[in-house]
C-alpha cells in the first residue's frame, strides 16, 4: 500500500502563537483515517494547511507531500495549489452552503469542476454530472436546481458529488455531518465511505464525534492542544487508550454508564494557543507530575503510539479519575 498523504512535522502559527505543532500523519491509498479533537485542538487547521487554504496571517511549517504531486505543498504558491485542489485533493466542509455558488445550477457547478481539471467534453461532463448525482442518491432533476432549493442533507450530498467528481487521491472531510440531523447524517456518512471505497481514495475524516469516527474510520489520530497525543487502529485506541486525554475523553462520552453521574475531565478546554507548555493536557490531567512540564516524547510507531509520561496501563478503562 503506497502512502497518498505524508505529513511530517507540520506546524501552524499565527504571529508568535503556535496553534499546531509537530503533526506527523500518513494516509495510505484506500485507507480511512480519522482526526479527532475538540475545539482548539488544531484539527481543522491541519486540514486547511494540507490544502494550502490557511487564512492570510496564519503560517504553516514542516512538510506535506502528496503522492503524484512532485512538489512540497507547504508554502506552494496559489497557482500550483489550485491545480492540486479539486483534482488530487478534494474537501467537504461542515457548511455545504458556503461551498456552493448560490447563483449557479447544481449541474453546471459539477460540470465546471470536471472541466477545470480534465479535458472532458461539455456534453460528456453533463452526463458524468448526472451519473455522480445518482451515486449520491439524488434524482436527475437536482441538476437543474439551485442550492437554496435543496435541504441541508441534499446540499452536503451535492458537495460530496463535487468533491468526488475528479476521483481525488485524497478526500478530506471536516465535520461533514455536524450540521445535519442524525438520520441524514447516516446517509451522508454511508455515501462518503462508499465513495472513497469505490475509488480506493484515501480519506482523512475530521470530527469531534468519537462514535462517528469509530464507525467511519479504520485508524484514528487524537489531537489536543495542537498536538497529536495518540494514534492507532480505532479498535485499539478506543478500547485500550494509552494517553490520559484519550482515556478521559472516552469516559466522558460514555453515556451508557449505569450511574447518574458521568465521568468528567476537570476544567475547560483552553482557548487556541493558550495550552500549557510541555504536555498540553497536564493542566487537566489527574496523573500529571513535575515531569509533565517537559514535552513527552512519542512512544511507539508513527501509525500506533502516544505521547504521555504517565500512560494508562495496557489494560482497559479502569482507574479513570472521577472528578
Amino acid at each position: 500500500m503506497n502512502d497518498v498523504l505524508t505529513v511530517r512535522g507540520l506546524s501552524v502559527t499565527v504571529r508568535e502563537t503556535a496553534l499546531v505543532s509537530d503533526v506527523d500523519l500518513t494516509v495510505g491509498a484506500g485507507e480511512r483515517v480519522g482526526l479527532i479533537g475538540e475545539s482548539g485542538s488544531g484539527k481543522s487547521l491541519t486540514a486547511l494547511s494540507i490544502l494550502g487554504l490557511l487564512p492570510e496571517d496564519v503560517r504553516a511549517g514542516g512538510s506535506v507531500r502528496l503522492d503524484g504531486v512532485d512538489h512540497e505543498l507547504v508554502g506552494a504558491d496559489e497557482r500550483r495549489m489550485s491545480r492540486v485542489r479539486g483534482r488530487d485533493i478534494a474537501m467537504v466542509f461542515q457548511e455545504p452552503m458556503t461551498a456552493l455558488n448560490p447563483t449557479m445550477r447544481i449541474g453546471d457547478q459539477i460540470a465546471e469542476t470536471m472541466l477545470v481539471h480534465k479535458t472532458l467534453s461539455k456534453p460528456a461532463a453533463r452526463t458524468a454530472a448526472a451519473d455522480l448525482l445518482e451515486r449520491v442518491q439524488l434524482p436527475a432533476e437536482t441538476l437543474r436546481a439551485y442550492p437554496h432549493q435543496l435541504s441541508g442533507g441534499q446540499r452536503q450530498r451535492v458537495v460530496l458529488a463535487l468533491a468526488l467528481a475528479n476521483d481525488p487521491a485524497l478526500l478530506i472531510c471536516d465535520e461533514p455531518t455536524t450540521a445535519l440531523d442524525v438520520t441524514v447524517q447516516a446517509l451522508v456518512l454511508d455515501l462518503i465511505v462508499r465513495g472513497v471505497v469505490d475509488r480506493s481514495s484515501a480519506l482523512l475524516f475530521i470530527t469531534h464525534d468519537l462514535a462517528v469516527v469509530a464507525t467511519v474510520c479504520e485508524r484514528v489520530l487524537v489531537m489536543y492542544g495542537g498536538r497529536v497525543v495518540e494514534a492507532g487502529p480505532v479498535n485499539e485506541v478506543f478500547t485500550r487508550p494509552r494517553h490520559r486525554y484519550t482515556e478521559g475523553l472516552l469516559a466522558a462520552s460514555d453515556l451508557e454508564t449505569t450511574s447518574r453521574r458521568l465521568t468528567t475531565i476537570p476544567g475547560n478546554v483552553p482557548p487556541a494557543g493558550r495550552f500549557p507548555s510541555g504536555c498540553v493536557f497536564r493542566t487537566r490531567c489527574a496523573h500529571a507530575t513535575a515531569l509533565c512540564e517537559e514535552t513527552p516524547a512519542w512512544s511507539g510507531s508513527e501509525a500506533e503510539g502516544f505521547a504521555c509520561h504517565h500512560p494508562a496501563a495496557q489494560g482497559s478503562l479502569e482507574g479513570v479519575a472521577d472528578a
Partner: peptide, 18 residues
C-alpha cells in the same frame, strides 16, 4: 441511525446506520 462506540467497535459500519 445513531452511531455509538459500542456498535462501531463490535463491527457496525455506516451501512448499518441505514
Amino acid at each position: 441511525a445513531i452511531p455509538t462506540l459500542q456498535r462501531a467497535l463490535s463491527g457496525a459500519t455506516t451501512a448499518d446506520l441505514l
